[in-house]
Write a protein that binds this DNA or RNA. Sequence first.
DNA 1: TGTTTACTCTATTAAATTGATAGGATAATT
DNA 2: AATTATCCTATCAATTTAATAGAGTAAACA
Lengths: 149, 149
Amino acid sequence: MKEPLPKFSYLSPMLSKKTKYGLKALAHLASQKDNRPVQIAEIAKHENISQKFLESILLSLRKTGFLGSKKGKGGGYYLIKDPKEILMTDVMRILEGPIAMVPCVSLNFYEKCDDCPDENTCSVNKLMLKVRDANLAVYRNNTLADLII
Amino acid sequence: MKEPLPKFSYLSPMLSKKTKYGLKALAHLASQKDNRPVQIAEIAKHENISQKFLESILLSLRKTGFLGSKKGKGGGYYLIKDPKEILMTDVMRILEGPIAMVPCVSLNFYEKCDDCPDENTCSVNKLMLKVRDANLAVYRNNTLADLII
DNA sequence: TGTTTACTCTATTAAATTGATAGGATAATT
DNA sequence: AATTATCCTATCAATTTAATAGAGTAAACA
């Protein structure tokens, strides 16, 4: 007895909204002619993002050295580095977390899997190592500049 | 003011336990000399998996045509196809769901992102398309046979 | 024929995470 | 001093995950 493919509703997509919003905001800032500060409200409106949620995302991008901010009138957020110098590996690690799908194959956040006795004979480890390498290759070969048309 | 890299505890790894357990169980079955039925309890014990949880995973793999089952004494689960014929794309789609990280770049589960006005100018779409292709390449080029030592 | 074995199915649960919101504090500009 | 806009803390509902319980069903075997 076979069943049809299960219907995934994508109610919980694998890419978090945080990352999605963060990427869109960065791309928005990178699209500015000069590097003028852009207000949260403007980004939120233009990119269809909850303003309060976006606030916390931009804040974390500022604290990790991607963005600068200016308070008061005419204030807002702006890119600190050239978009061509902003690697997706760094952005993704800040916004989404580890790139590896299991801790035991993570470069920056390695942890032993608590349930796995031996990584060398683990089939999951073997597959996820290849997946990690494939993803890393993409993120390393793409900068913020590559995301804007 | 900069912050150190956030510490991801990997409390919620991106690969679900369901997929992890499912892969391990499939690999366990593929490692059997003959294709004899293996009891749930044996797999669970050998692979450090909650037996009841594993039950439901194996059931879904049976209903989707990967496994056969035999009841009663000497019963258990067994592979229906040759491990070399079992593509990781198919396994991952059953266990984990869509391979794409956003619905708007999914081959098998396409959906328009509700918050995005135009996919053609979406920076997230652009990046996630590349990620999907990279992941697909890995999953297409690996079979269950490739997971066992 | 009856007992044992082992898969099948439904339902429930605690814990964690996500995404969103509210409200006020702070700092810079005018 | 007043306005603007970032900064920070706390809270919230909804969802998902992982695990467990318990009863039902079918096959093998003595």
